[in-house]
Amino acid sequence: MLTEQERARYNRQIMMPGWDEAGQEKLKNAKVMVAGAGGLGSPVLTYLAVAGIGKIRVVDCDVIELSNLNRQMLHPDSNIGKLKVESARERIEALNPDITVETVNTKITDGNVLDLVEDYLIVDAMDNLQARYCLNKASLERSLPLFHGAVYGLEGRVTTILPGETPCIRCLYKDVLPGTPPVVGVTPGVIGCIQATEVLKYILGMGKLLYNRLLIFDGLNTIFNKVKIKKDPNCDACGSSV
């Protein structure tokens, strides 16, 4: 049941055809883990929090640095030197006190990922392939959807992974460009918002998700391309021989 305050807070989205109070209750009962409270994590956490996801778990292992602030808009300048997860908690609780925020200040590894994920939906807002592989492992082992985003400069990618139905992260990425990528804040802004949209649609059972599709955002030319991606039958993680 929604409280009077929740009915008022979420009124404008409850008005959406097909959303209704029942949809809002689905969000209230949902649990989402956001891996990474940086460039992608900032918009993802912001929009999941204000949309009313009941339980949000934030996992990150970094402290805020000045050079993060061109894109990680969850964190204010005054929080430089603080743990990102603590700064994220402050911001999310200020945005929406009606939801629960859990924070874990740790590096995601193959050893801890299953404990971190439990049965939460997984948002991949990481910045390195190794951590993404860890999330992929948990997604496959627990049959949980994985909402993937990646950025470079003014270019971004999004896909939604459903174990058994779509390619996994290992099907998609054998290797990535190495090094510290340039990032303009608007790019993770666009990509993170699309990831959050996918999460909401998944929970609500609305619309069409980015299954078996990779959305490519070319911010320099303002073009969105959508391509069909395929499972790799020889994939080490989800292939037929696993």
Partner: peptide, 10 residues
Amino acid sequence: LFLLLNICGG
């Protein structure tokens, strides 16, 4: 033909 380079920033 569409070439794509894998990126990984977050």
